[in-house]
Computed example of a mutant assay.
Amino acid sequence: MATLLLEANDIVRWAVSLAWPLVRISALLLVAPVFGARQINTRVRLGLALLLTWMIAPQLPEPPLIDPLSAHGLVVAAEQALIGIAMGFVLTLVFSAINQAGEAIALSMGLGFASAVDPVGGVQVPMISQYLSILATLIFLAMNGHLVLLELLLKSFETFPISLDGPEPEDFWYIAGFGAQMFAGAVLIALPAIAALLLVNLAMGVVTRAAPQLNIFAVGFPITIVAGFLIIIWTLPSLTARIGDFLFSALPLIERIGRL
């Protein structure tokens, strides 16, 4: 009987050593932009989560011996899912803010009606937003941001091990404050183009006032669109650097969430 009880405890310990890390990793891969894109098959995402769990499980601290199907086990699983979702949601805020910057630029150019499906979020966004989103994704991958994100995820098991002591609700106010900073930064990204296009619109208003016979709808829209593209090309070097800083400003908060 003692042998059977020992084997049952070993089975439970082996199950929780894989189940709870899998929940945290799967939650992050489901929410984080690059990994959670709709183009990535669910089986591929699940296989990556299983592979990461299998690789890091032997290196993790021993989790508490709690039945995963008990009430306490469900609470621990919910906490692990919440931590993973919070870490991925921080990076999602950055991409959402970049989409908002692109939408503001597109509306100033008169391209708000030209929309397409965003490959990251899977929603309809203006073409300029899609361009900035793809640019941000390429910058993120080129700077090995996906590897840094996975490294922070794995380190979170050391700084915040699996236990019954979950994060406090007030700890997630950091995410709300970070969201405000991100959308303020999105305004700074769109501000040069918006200010330049405002001057173009003012110039077109002066021209229309001086020559009323000029059809502003036939002349103004092409000029505004061409000027918008020229401004984007002109500000592209500083734009890529700002987007890179924008993306990696989220990594310290992701690391902090892992230490809550």
Rank of each mutant, 00 (worst) to 15 (best):
L230E: 12
A15F: 07
V117Q: 12
Q100Y: 11
L247D: 05
A19P: 01
M87Q: 13
V34S: 11
A57M: 12
R43W: 14
I223T: 04
F113Y: 12
Q80P: 04
Q39E: 15
L60G: 10
H72K: 13
R209Q: 05
G73D: 03
P212R: 13
P33Y: 03
I134C: 01
P21V: 10
M1S: 09
A8H: 11
N9H: 13
L152C: 08
L191M: 14
G102Q: 08
P222C: 01
L251A: 03
L188F: 00
L247I: 15
L107K: 14
L51W: 04
D171C: 08
F221T: 12
G88S: 08
A37V: 15
L191F: 07
V75N: 04
I257K: 09
P119M: 06
M55R: 12
L147Y: 02
G47K: 07
L260H: 01
G185C: 03
G258K: 04
G36M: 14
L199T: 12
A241L: 14
L147P: 00
F229R: 03
W20D: 11
V75W: 01
T3E: 12
V12C: 14
L147V: 05
R242F: 03
I162A: 01
V206S: 11
L149E: 00
Y131G: 05
W54P: 00
W20V: 12
A250F: 03
A104F: 07
